[in-house]
Amino acid sequence: MGALGPGDRLVWTVVALLALGTYALRLSFIQLYGTVEAFPPWVERALAYVPAAVMAALVFPALFALDGTVAGLVNARVLAGGLAAVVAWRTRSMLLTIVVGMGVLWLVTALSG
């Protein structure tokens, strides 16, 4: 049994508040853009770098950090992720990137385990 009982009213309170909150965060600038004064030019320039920064911020910890601690520079995930990155860069194929990455991860895990 988990933290909540069945039919717990707490669940629906949390669901309602989270639904409103996440939706507001998503809608925020899509709604505001163009209705408020123009953003300063540097904001527009900065927006060009958001995609690369967000993607890297999601990728790096999955390779180099586990459970909040730095896992080291060489591990199965780094090898798999590194080769996957080369494949992604050379082929632009998402499917091939994922297949190669998982293949290397399983291979390295099997060989080292």
Binding site: V54, A57, A62, G81
Partner: peptide
């Protein structure tokens, strides 16, 4: 999941500033 994000990340490394943005974000995230 991270593999999917790696594939997406590589598409945004168009110029040097984008590469620096990615590297800085990655190091900070770790």
């Amino acid at each position: 999941v991270p593999l999917a994000f790696i594939a997406l990340l590589m598409r945004f490394l168009s110029d040097r500033a984008a590469k620096v943005a990615a590297l800085a974000a990655g190091v900070l995230a770790v």
